[in-house]
């Protein structure tokens, strides 16, 4: 390689490396803020602010869904299956994928430590796809893995 091209190559590599390093630093600095939601342990420990518009997420605890028979009011518990959980109240139509054992993300505010008033419920699905017949054969797969575990 002739010296002129080598100089240009080095300059270009510096440009890319410099950009990569600065972007990484920005992302590292913003790390917690890029997370789309607070997991249950952050809600319980006090990391999530009370009375502010936030998003929190977790797995809908088995047997925790209570529906008001006369309306759209519903309450359920979000858990990380590791001891942290909080209660969510919501009034409105739930997404099709909402069910017990499913990951969901709720938007709204914490009224106190452990109680969340949601204005929107989003269903989180995992990366596994399966035909219904196969899912019936393997009940172990019915339950989603803990969707809120990664990324921390």
């Amino acid at each position: 390689m002739n010296p002129k091209r080598r100089t240009r190559l080095v300059a270009v590599l510096f440009l890319v490396a410099g950009t990569a390093i600065s972007v990484s630093l920005v992302l590292l600095a913003l790390n917690e803020n890029i997370n789309m939601f607070y997991p249950p342990d952050a809600v319980v420990s006090g990391e999530a602010p009370i009375g502010a518009q936030i998003r929190a997420g977790g797995m809908v605890a088995d047997g925790s869904v209570l529906r008001d028979p006369n309306g759209l009011d519903v309450s359920f518990v979000l858990t990380d299956y590791a001891g942290s959980e909080f209660k969510v109240r919501y009034s409105g139509i739930l997404p099709d994928l909402f069910r017990e054992g499913q990951g969901v993300i709720v938007q709204g505010e914490l009224t106190d430590r452990g109680h969340f008033q949601a204005s929107q419920v989003l269903a989180k699905h995992d990366e596994n796809y399966m035909p219904p017949e196969l899912a019936e054969l393997s009940p172990g797969h019915q339950k989603q893995p803990n969707l809120i575990d990664h990324g921390r």
Partner: peptide
């Protein structure tokens, strides 16, 4: 060329965003 090169930094961010941070989007299948 400079913009294209600098912008490639975004590609690993797209790919690993679902692993590095808590997202609504599911990880890769």
């Amino acid at each position: 060329a400079v913009l294209a090169l600098v912008g490639t930094v975004n590609i690993p961010i797209i790919k690993y965003s679902v692993n590095w941070w808590l997202t609504l989007h599911q990880p890769a299948s």
